[in-house]
Amino acid sequence: MIIDAFLTPYFPETENQFENSLVVMIDVLRASTTVCAALNAGAKEVIPSDSLDKAVRIYNSLSREVRFLGGERNGLMPQGFDAGNSPFEYVPEKVKGRSVILSTTNGTKTFQKAKNAKHKVVAAFANNAVITEYIKILLSEYDSGDAKLVFLCAGTNGRMSYEDVLCAGIIIHEISQIYTDCTITDTADAARNLYAFNANDMKNFLMKSDHAKILAAKGFEKDIEFCLTMNTLPVIPIVGSNTIRALDI
C-alpha cells in the first residue's frame, strides 16, 4: 500500500491520478467540521460549490423548504446567505432534512477534486475515530499491494495549514501501525511526524497556527476550540460526484 499526502490543494491533477484511490479530504478550520456538523444535525446532503455565484444558482434551483445556503469568504458570511462557516450554525432546527449548499474559501474547492477516486471521505478532528475506523474497513477491500490512501489538505489561501496536516498525520500514524510494510511518501511522513512531535499537546500547538490566529482575530475563538476538539461529531461524510452525504452507521 502507498500512503500519500498533498499538503495544499494546488497541484497539477492528471486525469487518472486518483484512480482506484481512497482519498481523505481535510479542512479542519472549518469546512470539514461544518460538513460533519450539518450531516450530524440531519441535513440530507451538503452540496459543495467552488464559487459563491454557483452556490446561489444551486440554492435558487431548489424549493424554499428544502434548501439552506452557507459559506464564507475570508472567514465571514456573504451577504444574503443563511449561515456562515461556523459549525454552531448548522443545527437540526435549521438544516434537518435540507440540502445545504456550502461555498468556502478553501475547503469546498478541495472537496471537488479527485473526481475519479474510488472512495472519497471528509475528515476532521471532530470525526477522527469513526472516519479512521471506516478507512480501515475500506482499505480491507483492496489487495494490500494495490491500495493507495491519499490525503488532500485544503490549507489556507494556497499555503499549508498545520491543523490539516496534523489531522492527516493522526490517521496516517494509525493506519501505518496496521500496514507496517506500506510505502509512505515524504509528505505523508511529514504529516505523521508533525503528529508524533505534538501528540501530547496538539490543541495548544494548533491554537498558535496561522489559520487559528486569522479566525481568532475575527472573533471565532469558540469555533477554533470546537474544531480542534477530538471526536465530537460521530459522522462519516461520503463525497459523491456532486454531493456529500452521511453514511448510515
Rank of each mutant, 00 (worst) to 15 (best):
E221I: 13
K213Y: 15
K222R: 11
Y134M: 10
S140G: 03
A147K: 02
N204I: 07
Y142W: 12
E133P: 07
T110F: 00
N127I: 12
L139E: 00
A216K: 10
R192F: 05
V165Q: 02
Y195Q: 06
N127Y: 14
I214H: 12
A124I: 15
Y162G: 02
I172D: 01
I172G: 01
A129D: 15
N193P: 13
A188V: 04
N198A: 11
N200V: 12
S103P: 01
S161Q: 11
N116M: 07
R192I: 05
K222G: 15
F205Q: 10
T185A: 14
N204M: 08
N127L: 11
G107T: 04
K94E: 05
Q112N: 14
K109S: 15
G158V: 15
K218Q: 08
A196N: 15
E133Q: 12
Y195L: 08
L102W: 03
T110A: 01
E141S: 08
T132I: 06
A168P: 10
K203M: 12
A126V: 08
I171D: 00
T180G: 07
M202Y: 14
D146T: 05
D146K: 10
E93T: 12
M207W: 07
K203F: 13
M202A: 14
I175H: 02
K203L: 14
A216G: 12
E133W: 05
L102S: 03
S140F: 01
F151G: 00
I172P: 00
D164F: 02
A216Q: 09
S176H: 09
A199I: 14
S103Y: 01
A168G: 10
K136E: 14
V121Y: 02
T132S: 09
L102P: 01
R192D: 06
D181V: 11
G219E: 05
V130D: 02
T132Y: 03
E163F: 06
T185N: 13
E93C: 13
E163L: 12
Q177H: 08
A124P: 05
